[in-house]
Nucleic acid binder design. Structure first.
Lengths: 255, 255
DNA sequence: GAGTGGTCTAGACCACGCC
DNA sequence: GCGTGGTCTAGACCACTCA
C-alpha cells in the first residue's frame, strides 16, 4: 500500500540494493568486461520498481565508473587497461638527449600523436611566477597541447617557461624539434637536472570531460611538474591533466 | 506547451544549464567555501522546473565533488585542503631509524591516530606472492589499519610481509613499536633500501566510502608500495587507499 | 520499427536539521 | 514545526542503435 515502503527498519533504499546486487554480479564475475547489464526495463520488472528507481540504481554504478551507458544500446561493464607512466625513468636525460620527447617514452610501440598545440607569450599568472621564481610582472611562454595514444586522448598539458630564457627559440614554435623542450633547454645551457611532481585527484570539469572524452565516473589526475637545473633554477612548470582510467603512475626512490 | 522543450537547436538539457550556472557562480567566487547554495525549492522557482530537474542539476555538482548535500540543511560549497605526502622524504631512513613511524612523518604537529588494526597470518594471495617474489603456497603476515589526522580518516593500509621473515616478531603484533615495521625489518637484518610506488585513481567502493567517510564525488588514490632491501629482495607490499580530497602526493627525482 | 537510454513533469511520503 | 534534502511512483516525449 505504502508508496515508499520504509517498512523494514533501517533497510537501505531500494535503488541502493539494486545497485549493490549489480555491483556484486560484476565483481563476482557474472558479468565480464564489456558485457551488457540488465537495462532499465529489466530492472523495473525484476524488482517491481518505477523507472526512475531503476535509473537511479544504474546512475550509482555509472558515477562509480564501473559501467558506462550507451544511448540506444544498453549499459556495459567497463574495462580498465591503464598505461604505465614511470616518473623517474621517462625523464632520464638519455631519452631527450637522443631525440625522443618525454611523451614518446610512455608509448611502447603504440601510436602516439599530439594535437591542439597552441603557443603564446603571456604575463605569468601569479602561481606560475611563484613556481618559476620570477617577478610578478614577468613574461612566460605558454605551450598547450593534447596527447593521444592509439587515437585516444590521454592527457592535456600546459607548460610555462620564462620568456627571457626561451623567446625566439624553437620552444616558442609549435614544433620544438627532436627531444622536445628539454633538449632545447639543454642547448640553451639550462638542461633540467631535477624534477618535482605533485599529484592531485579530482573529478573533471565539463570541458575536460569533452577534451579527454571521459565517461561519467572517471576521475582525473593533476600532475604538476617543476623542472630545475643543476643550480636548482626552475626552468619549466608543466601542468598536466590525465585521464585517471588510462594511467598507472610509478615512482622509484631510495630510503 | 511542450513538456520537454527540445525546441532550440542542440541546446543542452535544462539540468545541465542549471548546473553550469551554479558551477560558474562557485568558480567565479560568488559562493565561497562552505557557503550555502540555492536549494531545490529555489531552483524550481528561479528556473520554473520540476523538482526532479532541480535535483538532477544538483546531483551533477555533487558527483563532481564540488558541493556536498546535508540532509535537512542544504547544499554547501566544498573546501579542498589536502595534506602533502612527500614520497621520498617521508621514507628516508633517518625517520624510522629515530623511532618515528612513516605515517607520523606526514603529520606536522597535527594529531594523528591509527585504529582498526588487525594482524593475521594468511596464505599469500596470488598477486601478493608475485610482488614479494614468494612461491604460491607461501604464508604472509597481513597488517591492516586505518590512519586518521585530526580525527578525520585519511587512508586505509594493508601491508603484507613474508611470514618466514617476520613471524614471532613485533611485526606480528598490533603495536610494532618505535619506528614501526621498517625499524623492525632493520633489526632483523633486512632494512628497506629501495621503494617503488604505483598510483592509480578510481571511485571508491561503498565500503571505502563508509570507512573513509567520503562524500559523494570523491575519488580515492590507490598507492601500491613495494619495499626492497639493498639486495633488491622485496620485504613488504603495502596497499594503501587514500581519500583523494585529502592528499597531494609529491615525488622528487633527478634526470 | 522495436527497444534502449535521456530528459522532464507532477505529486507523494519520509528523515533530518534547526529555530 | 517548517524547511531541507532523500526516496519513490506514474506517465510523457525524445534521440539513438540495431536488426
Amino acid at each position: 500500500m505504502n508508496p515508499v515502503p520504509t517498512s523494514e527498519n533501517d533497510s537501505p533504499p531500494v535503488y541502493r540494493e539494486i545497485a549493490e546486487a549489480l555491483r556484486h554480479a560484476i565483481t563476482s564475475g557474472q558479468f565480464a568486461d564489456g558485457d551488457r547489464l540488465p537495462g532499465e526495463n529489466d530492472l523495473m520488472q525484476q524488482y517491481g520498481v518505477a523507472r526512475a528507481t531503476a535509473r537511479h540504481a544504474l546512475s550509482v554504478l555509472i558515477n562509480e565508473g564501473i559501467v558506462v551507458s550507451v544511448r540506444g544500446s544498453g549499459i556495459f561493464v567497463r574495462a580498465f587497461r591503464p598505461l604505465r607512466r614511470h616518473g623517474p625513468r621517462r625523464l632520464a636525460r638519455e631519452l631527450w638527449e637522443t631525440g625522443r620527447a618525454v611523451w614518446e617514452a610512455d608509448a611502447n610501440d603504440r601510436e602516439f600523436e599530439t594535437d591542439s598545440i597552441t603557443v603564446r607569450e603571456i604575463d605569468a599568472p601569479e602561481y606560475v611566477a611563484r613556481a618559476l621564481d620570477l617577478p610578478d610582472e614577468a613574461r612566460v611562454v605558454r605551450r598547450r597541447r593534447r596527447h593521444h595514444l592509439d587515437g585516444r586522448p590521454m592527457q592535456l598539458a600546459t607548460s610555462y617557461l620564462p620568456a627571457e630564457l626561451v623567446a625566439g627559440t624553437a620552444i616558442g614554435e609549435p614544433d620544438t624539434g627532436p627531444g622536445g623542450i628539454y633538449a632545447r633547454l639543454g642547448e640553451l645551457g639550462h638542461p633540467p637536472a631535477h624534477f618535482t611532481e605533485e599529484i592531485r585527484v579530482r573529478m573533471p570539469t565539463p570541458g575536460e570531460t569533452e577534451e579527454l572524452r571521459l565517461s561519467a565516473g572517471t576521475p582525473v589526475l593533476d600532475v604538476l611538474r617543476t623542472a630545475l637545473t643543476t643550480e636548482h633554477r626552475p626552468v619549466e612548470l608543466n601542468e598536466m591533466t590525465l585521464d585517471g582510467s588510462a594511467y598507472v603512475l610509478q615512482y622509484d626512490f631510495d630510503a
